Amino acid sequence: MMIGATGRGKTHLAVGMMYWILERSGYKLLKTVMKNGKPVETFFSWKIIFVDWRELIERKKQFFNDDQMAKQINKTMAEIKNADVVILDDFGSERGTEYSLDLADAFWRDRENKTVIVTTNLIGSDLTARYGDRTLSRMKNHGVNNGITFANIPDHRGLVE
């Protein structure tokens, strides 16, 4: 979980972590599957998904009454649920509505005990105030002893060298 103000490099680092995972693994994921009742090691390609949180919410709202697009966004949600790694960018950047709170709860319920790399501008108490104890409890799996606070770092957007 990477926490800090805008323009501090959180998204840049999250994408770097994604490339690190892919390079270190040779772009392959070792999974053990059962064949004839015996475990067999098999290699699969990684499924890593980058999610812009605010855009996901907007897309889900836009396509609510469009059956064709609703199927597409529901497929995306299923892929997010089953991905090996999800990068959740700008979590908390949306306007706080019941709809976004329900989506956040569903996301964290689906990703509980699965790898999520989170970038957010909200600190712990702000996350609790926005999403409540239940959702934050699920998020803590990813943040406890795994957090990076981007403090005393200048906003690098728009800087000319």
Results as ranks from 00 to 15, higher is better:
Met2Val: 03
Ile3Arg: 01
Ile3Trp: 07
Gly4His: 00
Ala5Asn: 13
Thr6Lys: 11
Gly7Ile: 10
Arg8Val: 15
Gly9Ile: 10
Lys10Glu: 02
Thr11Pro: 09
His12Ile: 14
His12Cys: 05
Leu13Gln: 07
Ala14Gly: 11
Val15Gly: 01
Val15Met: 13
Met17Asp: 02
Met17Asn: 03
Met18Arg: 14
Trp20Ile: 07
Ile21Leu: 04
Ile21Val: 09
Leu22Asn: 03
Glu23Asp: 15
Glu23Asn: 14
Glu23Trp: 07
Arg24Trp: 09
Gly26Lys: 05
Gly26Glu: 09
Gly26His: 01
Leu30Arg: 15
Lys31Cys: 00
Thr32Arg: 04
Val33Gln: 10
Met34Ala: 03
Met34Val: 11
Lys38Thr: 04
Pro39Glu: 00
Pro39Gly: 00
Val40Tyr: 01
Val40Phe: 01
Glu41Pro: 00
Thr42Gln: 03
Phe43Glu: 15
Phe43Ile: 06
Phe43His: 08
Phe43Asp: 07
Phe44Met: 08
Ser45Tyr: 05
Ile48Arg: 09
Ile49Gly: 04
Phe50Ile: 11
Val51Gly: 03
Asp52Trp: 08
Trp53Pro: 09
Leu56Glu: 13
Ile57Gln: 04
Arg59Ala: 07
Lys60Glu: 12
Lys61Tyr: 15
Lys61Arg: 14
Phe63Glu: 02
Asp66Pro: 11
Asp67Gln: 09
Gln68Leu: 14
Ala70Asn: 10
Ala70Thr: 12
Ile73Cys: 11
Lys75Ser: 13
Lys75His: 12
Met77Arg: 00
Ala78Lys: 13
Glu79Ala: 04
Glu79Thr: 03
Asn82Ala: 00
Asn82Cys: 04
Asp84Asn: 08
Val86Pro: 00
Leu88Thr: 02
Asp90Asn: 15
Asp90Val: 13
Phe91Gln: 04
Ser93Arg: 11
Ser93Trp: 06
Glu94Lys: 09
Glu94Met: 08
Glu94Leu: 01
Thr97Val: 13
Glu98Ala: 14
Tyr99Trp: 13
Tyr99His: 12
Tyr99Gln: 03
Leu101Trp: 14
Asp102Ile: 05
Leu103Cys: 09
Ala104Glu: 02
Asp105Phe: 15
Asp105Ile: 07
Asp105Gln: 14
Ala106Cys: 07
Ala106Asn: 12
Phe107Tyr: 10
Trp108Arg: 06
Arg109Asn: 14
Asp110Cys: 01
Glu112His: 15
Glu112Pro: 00
Lys114Cys: 01
Lys114Ser: 08
Lys114Phe: 03
Val116Trp: 02
Val116Met: 02
Ile117Cys: 00
Thr119Val: 10
Thr119Arg: 05
Thr120Met: 11
Leu122Phe: 07
Gly124Asn: 01
Gly124Thr: 10
Ser125Leu: 06
Leu127His: 01
Thr128His: 05
Thr128Cys: 10
Thr128Gln: 07
Arg130Pro: 02
Gly132Ala: 08
Arg134Pro: 04
Ser137Asn: 15
Met139Leu: 11
His142Thr: 07
Gly143Lys: 01
Gly143Cys: 05
Gly143Ala: 11
Asn145Cys: 06
Asn145Pro: 00
Ile148Gly: 05
Ile148Arg: 09
Thr149Gly: 11
Ala151Gly: 08
Asn152Pro: 06
Pro154Trp: 01
Pro154Val: 05
Asp155Thr: 08
His156Asn: 09
Arg157Glu: 13
Glu161Leu: 13
